[in-house]
Design a protein around this nucleic acid. Sequence first.
DNA 1: GTATCTGCAAAACATTTGCAATTCT
DNA 2: AGAATTGCAAATGTTTTGCAGATAC
Lengths: 136, 136
Amino acid sequence: MSSIEISTFLKKHGIRPSFQRIKIYEYLVNHKTHPTVDTIYKELVNELPTLSKTTVYNTLSLFVENKITQLIFIEDNETRYDADYRTHGHFKCLKCGKIYDFKVETKETIEESLNGFEIKEEHYYIKGICKNCKQN
Amino acid sequence: MSSIEISTFLKKHGIRPSFQRIKIYEYLVNHKTHPTVDTIYKELVNELPTLSKTTVYNTLSLFVENKITQLIFIEDNETRYDADYRTHGHFKCLKCGKIYDFKVETKETIEESLNGFEIKEEHYYIKGICKNCKQN
DNA sequence: GTATCTGCAAAACATTTGCAATTCT
DNA sequence: AGAATTGCAAATGTTTTGCAGATAC
């Protein structure tokens, strides 16, 4: 996704496309590693030397409010962000720490036990050892 | 679960049953509300006036290490604990804040997309509006 | 020129750590 | 006595808040 596409995308979702916002969204979209605020900040501060963490926090909150980014909680003290807003699962490798996405569909058994409840967000995460770490 | 049963249970899991540990586990088992450290501390400090939050943290970490309690991350800055160590889902109501348990079985579609990965822990949580809040 | 956005510094929380006092065997 | 446990106080780390200056419409 290019800066111009991102700019249009942000406008479409009611967000004014400031330079910082474009850069932060660009980072999220092009690095599907579910980064933390700290990672995003450290990566972007080279390119935007005056960037502050406050702006990263503000911007990500804005993205979450406008539903173009979702929050991921897998570990304590480690809020992560994902530009993919569709429901999907996350697998975190306990050895290498990498996070993989996986496909998820709501199960009938869940729907049954939550009969009468209105589902707004679904989150799935699994911890274990990834294929790569098992082989090495 | 009575104090004596808890004492035996802790011993069985290699944990020395101190007074504080028994009380904390008792609270967890008898209040299936997935409390935070702060909630547990505030509830027990009446009964155990010298109790410190450090002890609550230490004890819960010990329980997690010994796999008699699981950690639940649903919100940021809000680590919760659950004496039920079996895999099950949590539904958090966005209106009343209450957390409900629901049954979950690993889906084939998840197993397929994680082929070759070793699953150690599975976590499912859903946010929405609970039956009770929808009716009122 | 008025709204919004950014970013610094300080505040607010949750959690961890070091260590001394206490408790248990 | 010796080992484990507890709890205070301080440190750490993350996120939020207040506010002043910069930027955009």
